[in-house]
Amino acid sequence: KFNKERVIAIGEIMRLPNLNSLQVVAFINSLRDDPSQSANLLAEAKKLNDAQAP
């Protein structure tokens, strides 16, 4: 279950337009470290993406 959620979360994070490459890598590394947190990490990535919108 967590592996599928992690793959989906990674794909979504990679498509967030307002994150820089270091932020994307940090979120992906966090997902690798704890796949059970996929939903929480994706939500945090989306919040950061929205906050950094031009």
Rank of each mutant, 00 (worst) to 15 (best):
K1T: 12
F2E: 15
F2W: 08
F2I: 11
F2Q: 08
N3R: 03
N3F: 07
K4L: 05
K4D: 15
E5Q: 09
E5F: 07
E5A: 06
E5Y: 09
R6W: 15
R6Y: 15
R6V: 15
V7I: 12
V7C: 14
V7R: 15
I8S: 03
I8L: 12
I8A: 08
A9S: 03
A9H: 03
I10Q: 11
I10M: 12
G11E: 14
G11S: 12
G11N: 14
E12K: 13
E12C: 08
E12P: 01
E12W: 05
E12M: 12
I13M: 03
I13Q: 01
I13F: 02
M14Y: 07
R15S: 12
R15Q: 11
R15F: 03
L16H: 02
L16Q: 02
L16A: 01
P17N: 06
L19C: 01
S21R: 12
L22Y: 13
L22F: 10
L22T: 13
L22G: 11
Q23L: 03
Q23E: 02
V24H: 03
V24F: 03
V25Y: 12
V25T: 14
V25P: 01
V25I: 14
V25H: 13
A26Y: 10
F27A: 02
I28M: 10
N29S: 14
N29T: 07
S30I: 14
S30L: 14
S30Y: 09
L31C: 03
L31V: 09
D33C: 08
D34V: 05
D34S: 11
S36T: 05
Q37M: 13
Q37H: 08
Q37W: 06
Q37T: 05
S38Y: 15
S38K: 03
S38W: 15
A39E: 09
A39C: 11
N40H: 15
L41D: 01
L41N: 02
L41I: 14
L42F: 03
A43C: 06
A43R: 10
E44A: 12
E44T: 08
E44C: 08
A45T: 00
A45C: 02
K46I: 12
K46N: 06
K47R: 11
K47C: 07
L48A: 05
L48W: 05
L48I: 08
L48D: 02
N49C: 01
N49T: 00
N49I: 02
D50E: 13
A51Y: 11
A51P: 01
Q52H: 04
A53C: 05
P54I: 11
P54L: 07
P54R: 06
